[in-house]
């Protein structure tokens, strides 16, 4: 994966997040390094479930609650995209 591919995946996932959560921001407005939860985008655990479902549908793998790295995975769009890049089945 090149840097360009990673950025493309980030963009794609920003769209996925905005669409599945019906957010009122443009995907391009999401700062890939800003926190997704709490401050930043202000998502909560309900949103996390929606995102997990969308990811499993689109990329064919499950995010699991017992992953000890969850805090890091969900930290930002960038970290989430990196996780998807590593585990995606499609």
């Amino acid at each position: 994966m090149t840097v360009r591919d990673s950025l493309a995946l980030e963009g794609e996932m920003a769209e996925l997040i905005v669409a599945s959560l019906r957010l009122e921001v443009a995907p391009a407005e999401i700062d890939p390094e800003a926190p997704l939860f709490g401050e930043g985008l202000g998502l909560d655990s309900i949103d996390a479930l929606e995102i997990a479902l969308a990811i499993s549908k689109t990329y064919g793998f499950q995010l699991r609650s017992d992953d000890e790295h969850n805090h890091r995975i969900f930290a930002s769009l960038r970290t989430l995209a990196a996780h998807v890049e590593k585990h995606r089945a499609r």
Partner: peptide, 13 residues
């Protein structure tokens, strides 16, 4: 705890 981002994933599992 709902304070944890993975809380709802955990509940659904």
């Amino acid at each position: 705890s709902l304070g944890n981002p993975a809380a709802m994933i955990e509940a659904s599992e």
